[in-house]
Design a protein around this nucleic acid. Structure first.
Length: 462
RNA sequence: UCCCGGGUAGCUCAGCUGGCAGAGCAGGUGGCUGUUAACCACCCUGUCGGGGGUUCGAAUCCCUCCCCGGGAGCCA
């Protein structure tokens, strides 16, 4: 159709140039002698102002140009005499491609609540909020690859359907080709899956980590970036049943290397956002006030505070604060504790390391004190845990002992132990919840608003 | 899953201790020569979430179910 994207028009267009643009009407303002249309095509935060003088034949098409209508307009780029935009189009021809009956089109030229927009998931990308979110999401996705590729990491694809259930990362979605009636309710754990498609019980992955480990122990530095599934009945503003996770895994690396990588990674992503999405961030700053360019710029450089779990407990104890949950060495940090550390003590991201072994997964490397493991969580204000990582246990005997303590049969994970039998090496990695990061950068308070089609309990319509 | 708070017009919400269902915005019509979520005037809009109960009478009180939001837990 030879259309020019609005983004290209604003970045490369010149006054006097004759162009054709297509998009969806955001608003229309008419008077007797002149009409204006704010047009959006998803390519940029700004709308394009179409100017239709009454003497133009295009003026007759205006009745069809309601909010939401898809239209095509041709005309000349002009320097705009009005405030609010550099360029506008003086329209000569206008065609309505798809009308949007204004009595029934749900999006109005006024603000809508995010809750309402969640009910019209198929139309909400047409709002400036979701357009901004999706463009930031795109830039961040690309930046993830840029970061790792520029450091020599190899992008690997770990399976979505897996048989490993021993990570203990909560409830899993079972994958089966059997008739639902064949596995009776309550029988799922004892059912004989040998007749099932894979001949074994299969799940949607909760993490690509175990597979990433064997790929790191052959390829060196690797990362995954793919969907992850959790069947937990979590109803919060920061949990999804289907989300995207980034999991780097490095051979010949320790916890220190891991925390440095995590910090550099977040720095890089913040920097890219500021560079590539200034308009979007400004928009969030103005309308939601939970983020700002200045904050992100600071985050792209600022060293993260780093404390051990033991120090964190001390910090919480001496705070004199009344917490709802007890603060005691050996108990996990609760949301309120994490929030105190990020919002009050450090006022920024904090990396907490070396947690008690009993509250962390079996694969985390046991420290010399024999009571903590080489784990690290990156906590950020408002959202909490955004990264969870560790140095992995590379010593066969220690790992076997940990598995036994956790009650995981060794033979169920024999291949994982093989990695410690043959050419074992220190290695470390972490997982970053992509949507949580998009939340963090955009300041969107609900995770369901940073993914086009959120999956959560009872939420799968779109 | 637990604890709170909600569900009233297309949207956001008011409707106090039971007594004729309202406002703003959106939409429609008309007006206006440059507007920026335009402005001005007029007009339209209802299964008060579903079911049951109390009552002469229920949006309002009680029971129950469903859904949504916030917080918590699980985690990324």
């Amino acid at each position: 159709m030879g259309r020019l994207r609005i983004q290209s028009l604003f970045s490369q267009g010149q006054a006097g140039q004759s162009v054709t643009v297509c998009g969806w009407v955001r608003s229309k303002r008419e008077s007797k002698g002149i009409a204006f249309i704010a047009l959006s095509d998803g390519s940029t935060q700004d709308t394009l102002q179409l100017v239709i003088p009454s003497e133009s034949s295009a003026f007759h098409e205006l009745p069809g140009c309601n909010t939401g209508a898809a239209i095509k307009a041709s005309g000349i780029i002009r320097e705009s005499p009005g405030k609010g935009q550099q360029f506008e189009i003086e329209v000569s021809t206008l065609a309505v491609m798809g009308n949007a009956d204004s009595e029934h089109y749900p999006l109005q030229k006024k603000g809508h609540s995010l809750e309402f927009l969640r009910d019209i998931g198929h139309l909400r990308p047409r709002t400036n909020t979701f357009g901004a979110v999706l463009r930031v999401r795109n830039v961040l996705s690309q930046a993830v690859h840029e970061f790792f590729q520029s450091r020599g990491f190899i992008w690997i694809h770990t399976p979505i359907i897996t048989s490993s259930d021993c990570e203990g990362a909560g409830d899993l979605f079972t994958v089966t080709s059997l008739d639902p009636g064949e596995i009776k309710k309550g029988d799922r754990d004892t059912f004989d899956y040998s007749q099932d498609f894979f001949g074994k019980r299969a799940y949607l992955t909760v993490s690509g980590q175990l597979e990433a480990e064997f790929l790191a122990l052959s390829m060196g530095d690797v990362y995954t970036f793919g969907p992850t599934f959790r069947a937990e009945n979590s109803n919060t503003s920061r949990h999804l049943s289907e989300f995207w996770m980034i999991e780097p895994e490095m051979a010949f690396a320790d916890l220190n290397d891991d925390t440095s990588l995590a910090e550099q990674f977040i720095h890089f992503l913040c920097k890219r956002t500021v560079e590539s999405c200034p308009d979007e961030i400004q928009f969030f700053e103005k309308f939601y006030k939970n983020t700002s360019i200045r904050e992100l710029e600071a985050l792209s450089e600022k060293k993260f505070a780093r404390i051990s779990y033991t120090e964190a407990i001390d910090e919480l104890k001496k705070s004199g604060r009344k917490f709802e949950f007890p603060v005691e060495w050996g108990l996990d940090l609760q949301s309120e504790h994490e929030r105190y550390l990020t919002d009050d003590v450090f006022q920024g991201p904090v990396t907490v390391t070396d947690y008690p072994k009993d509250i962390k997964a079996f694969y985390m490397r046991l420290n010399d004190d024999d009571r903590t493991v080489a784990a690290m969580d990156v906590l950020v204000p408002k959202i909490g845990e955004i990264i969870g990582g560790s140095q992995r246990e590379e010593r066969l005997d220690v790992l076997e002992a940990r598995l036994q303590q956790a009650g995981i049969p060794l033979e169920s994970i024999d291949w994982y132990l093989d990695l410690r039998r043959f050419g074992s090496a220190p290695h470390a990695g972490f997982g970053l919840g992509f949507e949580r990061f998009v939340q963090y950068v955009t300041g969107m308070s609900n995770i369901r608003d940073v993914i086009p089609c959120p999956r959560a309990p009872h939420t799968i319509k779109f």
